[in-house]
Design a protein around this nucleic acid. Structure first.
Lengths: 220, 220
DNA sequence: ACAAAAGTGTTCGCAATACACCCATGG
DNA sequence: CCATGGGTGTATTGCGAACACTTTTGT
């Protein structure tokens, strides 16, 4: 009547025009040497939310990141020792904020690496399925949530925003239509600042006004 | 590192113009005499999906019903014996098909009863939260899924369909606009049959063409 | 001057909304 | 003949989709 209980973390970011996911190379059986989602066991007297934060920190070095529950996976045959129930959580992070903080503080994995979601390696357990579910969920959330802005730095160009949309929706968008739509959203602030360090016309920077978003959407 | 593991079932139907949920009166501590979602423990070597079907059958007498995973709930303090992780599943059923089959085959609960979701009793554990999550999820699915038709008998009137939409969305809809929209969906079949036993003009019956729905929506 | 990406408007069709009356039936 | 719900159309508005050229900047 009891089961082992783990948390797995789907950590996504946007980098080099692509959605990327953070994977760990396992250093333990089963699936030694395979790539897998960062995850570990929940402690006996630990609240699930606390476990999520702890495991995220131990496995990746990241903290203070909001994680959303995806689903529970509980195949009896997932692991030779018997059922391991895992609850998958998903987080969106900004590459700039995170890239120097990533570190695996555990011997249970050998290294961490970002993979474009379009070029995933073979994955341990049912982790491929978990990732696909998370991408599906994200796709549905693009137009109703803060999803795109969680993947971008605080100041971003409209082209970057469009690339995020395109990566999430997995299709190309028309530039003029996209910008028209974005203009009507009402929760983007046009800054008087421009992109730097590019060898072509610098784009204007925008920021996301979370308060306005919540007012117009009534929470989310 | 191990946890108790249960399944809880959110079973919804549409009856007397209202969304209703099937609840069980507990006959065991903790929360003896409280109303709760039908649910029970998963066996050690049992796949989660099998457990869902078994528990649904044992607790309610229902079988061959598709259940969708909602989420996992795992508060350490939910139960005096320590953590009980529960995975909540949701099903939509048609009252006509189901009303004579409902029976609790377990001493662990005293009776089963349908409650309008707008008039819930006090609930055991965090079951209120689970129900609210399921209603949220349903609301989002109304326009993109077969949700409304799973709650209705095979033949239904447009007014019934509108009532289902209204109950799910929790707001009133305009009759003419609703019917126009429904007409454009393309996956409803107008039958040459009429409502019976009403003391006013009988409404035409319609049926849901699942194949057409899947063709136009590409699965769901 | 060239390469690269920024930025910008119009037209069309569809879908959502608002809104009120007559019709058919059973009792 | 009356009560009850069934059934119907039009005008307006906003949004999504299609579509191509000029401007700015750094090198």
């Amino acid at each position: 009547m009891q089961t082992h209980f783990t948390i797995d973390c789907v950590i996504l970011t946007f980098d080099e025009g692509q959605l990327k996911i953070l994977l760990a190379e396992r250093n333990e059986y089963p699936y030694k040497d395979w790539w897998a989602l960062p995850g570990y066991f929940v402690n006996k007297y630990e609240e699930m939310e606390d476990a999520v934060a702890r495991i995220l920190l131990e496995m990746t070095g990241l903290k203070d990141i909001y994680m959303d529950q995806l689903a529970a996976f509980a195949g009896v045959k997932r692991h030779p020792e018997g059922r391991i129930l895992t609850v998958a959580y998903m987080a969106l992070v900004q590459m700039d904020e995170v890239k120097n903080k990533i570190s695996s503080g555990t011997a249970y994995m050998r290294q961490l690496k970002w993979f474009p979601v379009t070029e995933l390696p073979d994955l341990a357990f049912d982790h491929k399925e978990i990732i696909e579910l998370s991408l599906d969920r994200l796709k549905k959330s693009v137009n109703y949530s803060t999803t795109p802005y969680e993947l971008l730095p605080a100041k971003f160009t409209l082209t970057q925003l469009q690339q995020v949309y395109e990566a999430l929706l997995n299709k190309q968008l028309d530039k003029r239509n996209f910008r028209k739509k974005i203009n009507n959203l009402g929760y983007l602030k046009e800054l008087n600042e421009f992109q730097k360090g590019v060898s072509y016309r610098a784009a204007k920077l925008y920021s996301f006004d979370k308060k306005k978003f919540q007012k117009t959407f009534g929470q989310e």
